[in-house]
Every structure is written in C-alpha cells, then in structure tokens.
C-alpha cells in the first residue's frame, strides 16, 4: 500500500544554494582582514629573510669558524661568536639561577600565602615591574648594585675559588689592600641585574598557572589531612610544573636578548671568559650595540649574522617553552 503520492515537483525550480552568500561588504571586510594579516606576515618574513640574506655574506666567508672563533675582526675575515655566545649564555644562566627561586617564592606567596585583600595589589606590582624599562635596571645596577656586590664576589672567590667558574686570576685573597676593580663589570653582576628584570616575567607566568590549580584537588588534599605545605607540594607544584618550566624558559629568552642593562655594566672582551666573577665579558646584543656604528659592509653583515644567531637561540627557547606550557596539565581543570 502506498502511503502518499509523491507530489509533482515543479520542474523549473533550481536546486537551493547551500553556501551562504557573504555579500559585498562582507567580502570586502574579509579582504581587509586578510590584507592586514598578510601585511604583518610580510613585515615579519621580511625581517627574518633580510637578516638571513645579509648574514649569508658573512657566514659564507667565515664558514664553520663563525661558531668557534673568539675574536671579532670582520674586515680581516677573522671573526666568530664563540666568545660573545658563551658570555651571553653565562649571563643568562646566572640570571636564571637567581631569578627562578625568587620568582617561584613570590608566585607561591602571592597565590597561596598573601592575604586576599592585598593579593590584587601585589599582582599589579609584579606586572608593573615587568614593564619597567631596562635602562632603569641598568642605572641601578651600575651606580648602586655594583659597589655592593663586589664584596660578595670577593667572598665567593676567596672561599670557593677552587671551583673553576669562581676562580679569579691575579687576586691574592690574603692581601687586604687588593683592589676591587678586578671584580667589577663581571658576568656575575650583569647576570644579577638581568635576573631582577626577568624575575617579574617568570613570576607572573608562574603565578597565573598556580592560581589555576583546581579547587577540587586542593580541597581534596586538605580533606585528607594535608596542611598548607602538604597541599602545595602534592597539588599546586605538580599542577604548575609545566608553567614553571615554561615561565623559566620565557625568562631565559628575555635574558638572552637583553641589551642595555648588560651594555652599561660589562666591559667587553673577546675571549671566552669562563670565570664569572672576573672583570670582562661580552654578549651578542652588547656586541651589536658596540660595533654597529663603525661597521663596514662586511662588518654589518657579520653583525647581522650574530643577530641572527641570537634570534635563532631565543626562538628555539621560546618555542620549546610554549610547547611545554601547552602540553603540560597546567591550565586544565580537574575532571571532578
């Protein structure tokens, strides 16, 4: 039995369009958006491409020696970033060693211990510190900090001088009249000043992650009889592990690229300086700031190559950091 007759369809009706017609203004709007995106992309690719292109000239002259040579005489064809790269990395490492404990402590204090009434103020203060210009830190380091930290440098070199990186040449610890200048302008001091600059950045990333630790798990820990530190150790710290690593690496990226504070403090030398307490070190960015003015065609190209190496280094550090943050559990709420 047939339930219904199929009605005769009017043969002339065309099939309906199933995609939306955005209309003229919308199409124009999308065009503008795409244009804006393409414009930004073009600028960014231009920066990267131009750096690579100009650096190529120097790299093809220096070959692999670019990584292993310590001196910087681009016009003589004898130049490399071994010394400045080691200096950059050492300064950044000193900065991280000082910044990470301070930043973690502050982040934990703000998210777990601080009274709720002042918490928002503290968050604002830390964010403000991340925005303070680097030249301000540089001035502070040069005029105030350096004079005070020399004592610490001398003490470390006297008692821990047997560890190779704390060794200082030409200092007799038993001579009370020895001049302090051998301890100034060192990797150690530059690193400590940079650590103050990167600590707020690390702190604000880490605090954000700590404050997202799921409430259910926190209360679960308390319900099982944990005290505050027990809760932090079993819930907050494991949850924020990705954020801690990622924030540290973001700070490392910032420390690698820092120019002005380092430039004001260090006295440049172009040998690998593994003794972090001793006068004289160098970094890629301060090399550029120092030599760009007198650079010839070849010198400019060599500086570009150094800038490119620095850029690649910070790029790798940043990408690793963001992938660690994205993959960790940080930012995910608990299932319950």
């Amino acid at each position: 039995m047939r339930i219904s007759e199929r009605p005769e369809a009017p043969a002339a009706e065309p099939p309906r369009r199933l995609y939306p017609d955005p209309g003229l203004t919308d199409r124009a709007f999308r065009g503008v958006l795409r244009g804006g995106g393409a414009f930004v992309l073009a600028i960014m690719l231009l920066v990267g491409g131009f750096l690579t292109y100009r650096a190529w000239q120097a790299l093809s002259v220096a070959q692999w020696g670019f990584i292993t040579t310590e001196t910087w005489e681009p016009d003589g064809g004898n130049f490399g970033i071994a010394a400045v790269l080691v200096g950059t990395i050492l300064i950044a490492l000193v900065a991280i060693v000082f910044a990470v404990p301070m930043a973690l402590g502050t982040a934990l204090y703000i998210s777990e211990y601080a009274p709720p009434t002042i918490r928002q103020t503290l968050i604002s203060v830390v964010d403000l510190m991340a925005a303070v210009p680097s030249v301000v830190y540089g001035l502070w380091g040069l005029f105030f900090f350096q004079g005070h930290v020399v004592t610490l440098s001398r003490w470390i070199s006297t008692y821990f001088g047997w560890i190779p990186i704390f060794e200082v040449d030409g200092v007799d610890p038993r001579d009370p009249l020895a001049t302090a200048t051998v301890f100034t302008s060192s990797t150690f001091i530059a690193g400590m000043v940079v650590s103050l600059m990167v600590a707020p950045i690390i702190c604000s990333v880490v605090r954000e992650v700590f404050s997202q630790a799921p409430v259910g798990e926190r209360e679960g820990a308390y319900a099982l009889g944990a005290n505050r530190w027990g809760m932090i150790r079993s819930v907050v710290l494991p949850f924020g592990k990705g954020g801690m690593i990622g924030g540290t690496m973001l700070g490392l990226g910032r420390a690698l690229g820092e120019t002005i504070a380092v430039y004001l403090i260090i006295s440049p030398v172009f040998v690998i300086q593994p003794h972090i307490l001793q006068n004289g070190t160098s970094s890629v960015s301060s090399l550029i700031a120092l030599r760009y003015g007198e650079a010839s065609e070849m010198g400019m190209s060599a500086l570009m190559a150094a800038g490119l190496a620095l850029f690649l280094m910070t790029l790798v550090v940043n990408f690793v950091a963001s992938s660690i943050v994205a993959r960790s559990r940080s930012g995910a709420a608990s299932d319950s």
């Binding site: 690229g257 800038g307 850029f311």
Partner: peptide, 23 residues
C-alpha cells in the same frame, strides 16, 4: 601560519629589530 610567525617574532631581541631598520 600567521599566528605561528607572530609568536616567533615576539622572541625577536629588540636590538635585532633596531639592526634591521638600520640596515
């Protein structure tokens, strides 16, 4: 793709940005 490139460029050290415009 644009987002990836923009994220990469936030890592650009400021002195390298200056060097680019200078060159």
């Amino acid at each position: 793709f644009v987002r990836t490139i923009v994220e990469a460029m936030t890592a650009l050290p400021s002195i390298v940005a200056g060097l680019f415009i200078y060159a």
